[in-house]
Design a protein around this nucleic acid. Structure first.
Length: 206
DNA sequence: TGCCAGGCCCTCTTTAGGGCCTT
């Protein structure tokens, strides 16, 4: 299986019918951007028809209505195109465990495997932004004073904001801990480090 | 019938409980 490109990462976000694919929930929208060498170079956004109606709660939460999904392509068709978009790159999401379980569930329906590994901006932010009011995506965007022009809880906008947060976190790690080359593998190891040991973790690199 | 997500992470912990975060 090909190896992920160390210079690129796919930032993705799902909107779904609910919280659990094991309870029958499906994806209704996927949004993603590709970052290469610190720059957003490509994007992907599609609604998809989950074959079941979305609840009033989801329609209000996301702004995605049953009318909008009625003429959307089925999940299997959209996910096949998304598989081409992500290729074998590494992946990133805010609370990645959520998006990973939907990615895995939707890909399993089309018998697709992927080579990339996930990193998580939620786990990273809990370690390097320990003074943030909380670690919701919208709160962190405000906390870091990131420019925003769109609506949260739509897939592409959330992916774009997650990408901005990711690049800001990499800059902050470089600046605050004097680490020149912040690699994906370092972020993965950081996520397994307890909050109390973050300074010790970074000190081991300098 | 009754239940209904689950991984992470802290703590008054590890033979557990509960808050956070995602839709």
């Amino acid at each position: 299986m090909p190896s992920p490109n160390a210079n690129s990462i796919i930032v993705l976000d799902f909107e779904t019918t609910g919280l659990s694919p094991l309870q029958g929930d499906r994806a209704i929208e996927i949004g993603a951007v590709k970052i290469t060498n610190g720059v957003v170079v490509d994007s992907f956004q599609e609604l998809m028809n989950p074959g079941r109606p979305v609840s009033t709660f989801i329609a209000e939460y996301t702004g995605i209505t049953n009318a909008m999904l009625r003429n959307a392509a089925p999940c299997e068709e959209v996910m096949a195109r998304f598989a081409d978009f992500i290729g074998d790159e590494n992946l990133l999401a805010h609370n990645a465990s959520f998006d990973q379980k939907f990615l895995d569930a939707e890909f399993s329906r089309i018998n697709h495997n992927y080579a990339g590994e996930f990193a998580c901006t939620l786990l990273t932010s809990r370690r390097i932004y320990q003074d943030a009011p909380n670690h919701k995506l919208g709160t962190l965007v405000n906390y870091k004073d990131l420019a925003e022009d769109g609506t949260f809880h739509r897939a592409l906008f959330d992916a774009e904001m997650t990408a901005k947060l990711w690049l800001t976190m990499l800059d902050d790690i470089r600046d605050n801990y004097q680490i020149n080359n912040v690699e994906f593998s370092l972020i993965k190891r950081l996520a397994k480090t307890s909050k109390a040991n973050v300074n010790k973790f970074f000190a081991s690199f300098s």
